[in-house]
């Protein structure tokens, strides 16, 4: 089992990369927002960018304001037509509750302002991960989850949607996002 933030970060990066996740950073908190804006302009030029505003890093880094300032159409859970527009959004931006270095999993907790589908319906999912939120093992993560009230949905995302149903050869992009990117934030 690895410990220490640097070792955990390296280990998570390796596991996520093995899961076909594009990993950026670690970047400083000051740079993180611009990084997200850059990815948003790339993945959803002129389209909606769905955001989970209640996720800790999203709120702390002022992601919504930065995206708006850059001229993107930010889609927030309370917005009129949110359900209809979400499926057409080019990108979903979330934070995560924690990330598991061992399995390369992003744990997303649903709550008000952090809907389940922002990481699910758009073709690209961008997830902000604070390096302090990396835990070494899945069992450690489960122990943390068991120690607090559980959200209505605790979702563990490994990477882009995939299937083994075509001659058992891993094929990406079925129902969920075909691209998952992670921005590690120091």
């Amino acid at each position: 089992m690895v410990s220490g933030v640097a070792a955990l970060t390296d280990s998570l990066r390796a596991a996520l990369s093995a899961n076909r996740v594009v990993v950026h950073g670690p970047v400083t908190p000051a740079d993180a927002a611009q990084h997200v804006v850059g990815r948003a302009l790339l993945h959803s030029p002129g389209g909606d960018v769905a955001v989970s505003p209640a996720d800790r890093l999203v709120a702390e880094l002022g992601i919504v304001d930065h995206l708006k300032a850059a001229g993107t159409n930010v889609l927030l859970p309370g917005d009129v037509g949110w359900r209809d527009r979400l499926s057409a959004a080019g990108l979903g931006v979330t934070g995560c509750w924690l990330a598991v270095a061992e399995t390369g999993s992003l744990a997303l907790a649903a709550r008000v302002g952090s809907p389940r589908a922002v990481s699910l319906l758009p073709p690209v999912h961008l997830c902000l991960v604070a390096v302090d939120d990396i835990v070494a093992t899945f069992s450690g993560a489960i122990a943390r989850a068991a120690g607090a009230p559980l959200p209505s949905a605790l979702t563990w995302v490994g990477g882009p949607s995939r299937t083994g149903d075509l001659e058992m050869i891993q094929t990406f992009g079925v129902h969920g996002p075909s691209t998952v990117e992670v921005v590690l934030v120091a």
Binding site: A110, R111, V112, L150, A153, T155, G159, R162
Partner: peptide
């Protein structure tokens, strides 16, 4: 790739 741990239906004000 995806594990969903579901504890009850959506809660008040969840989207």
């Amino acid at each position: 790739n995806y594990v969903s741990m579901l504890t009850g239906p959506r809660r008040d004000d969840e989207s």
